[in-house]
Design a protein around this nucleic acid. Structure first.
Lengths: 226, 226
DNA sequence: GCGCTGTCAAGAGCACTGCTCTCGTCGTGG
DNA sequence: CCACGACGAGAGCAGTGCTCTTGACAGCGC
């Protein structure tokens, strides 16, 4: 009954917050302002979110979810056997979503607010895109591991990758965990740096998409894709 | 005369700001609090910095400077002919500095405060590390461009890289501008993602340095270094 | 149908922020 | 020596996150 009203109010607040986030960014998100937006007084918002941080956390969670959903949808449209196509679709979808929702992306992948320890809630949805890449890597390996000239990773670094190996499945050699980590790092690193203005003088803004295509294709080649 | 006093006061404020930044991060940096710290009333600080943003900008500028100085020093200790060593020193110094000064690093390479347009002041010092990599790339090319299996970049992407090519020197082929961009992207991407907590479940914290060594060595190999 | 209980929104209030304005003071250059 | 300009202090404004108290309303058991 009033569960419904409550849930609706909650999403109404979140929508208003998302809107304000898009205009002024995480730092400028004012709980009082979103309260005004939805026609509430500031103290009433605390019935729905314990604090401003809690509101931000909720936004983060569903930003992860939205990104994951979008990328999954894009990747799913490519035939399973087209490994390069799946990689391209994934990489491109990440960047596209980030450019459409820059503030949400920044909220998730940007510098965390210090003193803000990511709650457990956020680590689950965070792995959705990761899972896609893991699946892709599995399929690459199953299709016969490509020739790679590098010396396989051993020693402490291999131990350091243990959690990742376990996540990917114990049959994955540490060397390919490293490759997966690096591919993942490249995609999100490139998107983040572009979005955060670190390529200002270096790449023509309108052509950054084209350059990104080449970058990710080089990574693909390095992964042994086609 | 009182120039001295003014300059000293200015650096005193900056030091206090840096200190507070280290404790509470950019978002929590309070002009009034740094004023208290240096024994001033808040309005007096405005004699030295037009606004909180101006203070942050000053911090950014000398963060760029500090990072550049540190990395340059580390790289300079390696014999010029040891190209791989220079790459390793550079990559490692960036990460080390970032881990020592996480808040300063985040200020510079993290998500920018929206509405905060990086003033011209910041783009000069920003290129110091970049210059190191450019010089290294030149030396790699001079030593005889390594074999690379990739198809050279052409088309719109090559045009997109034009500003970077110009910065590196027109004799540099666009293909190597792309390689340089990607190496740069990898280093700062990896450091940023690690620092911003995106590797939490993936890599054992104490061994992240070891893993980073492998990552950057893979990039080096990809660049044709040894 | 009535009253009770728990949920909700409102409002006042506290301590804090960035920033502006005014007003004394004091050192320095003419 | 004196006037001017830089400087610091203080008050004040509008805004913030968050807490606490007060009043209204809905849903429940009797």
């Amino acid at each position: 009954m009033r569960e419904r009203a409550r849930a609706q109010m909650r999403t109404e607040i979140l929508d208003a917050a998302r809107e304000q986030l898009a205009e002024q960014g995480a730092g400028g998100l004012s709980l009082r302002a979103v309260a005004r937006e939805v026609g509430l007084v500031s103290s009433a918002v605390y019935r729905y979110f314990d604090s401003r941080d809690a509101l931000l956390t909720a936004l983060i969670v569903d930003a992860y979810d939205a990104l994951g959903r979008t990328v999954e949808a894009a990747e799913a449209q490519v035939p399973r056997a087209d490994l390069l196509g799946r990689w391209r679709a994934t990489a491109w979808a990440v960047r596209s979503w980030a450019l459409e929702q820059p503030h949400l992306y920044a909220l998730v992948y940007g510098s965390p607010v210090p003193g803000y320890a990511a709650p457990q809630d956020t680590i689950g949805p965070a792995t959705r895109v990761t899972r896609l890449l893991v699946a892709l890597l599995h399929d690459i390996l199953d299709a016969g591991p490509p020739q790679v000239a590098d010396v396989p990773v051993t020693g402490p670094a291999a131990e350091g990758l243990a959690p990742l190996v376990e996540f990917m499945g114990p049959d994955v050699p540490p060397d390919w965990a490293l490759r997966g980590l690096m591919a993942w790092t490249y995609v999100f690193g490139a998107v983040s740096l572009e979005l955060f203005g670190q390529r200002v003088g270096a790449v023509v803004p309108e052509l950054r998409g084209e350059v990104y295509r080449w970058e990710t294709d080089r990574v693909a080649a390095w992964l042994g894709l086609v």
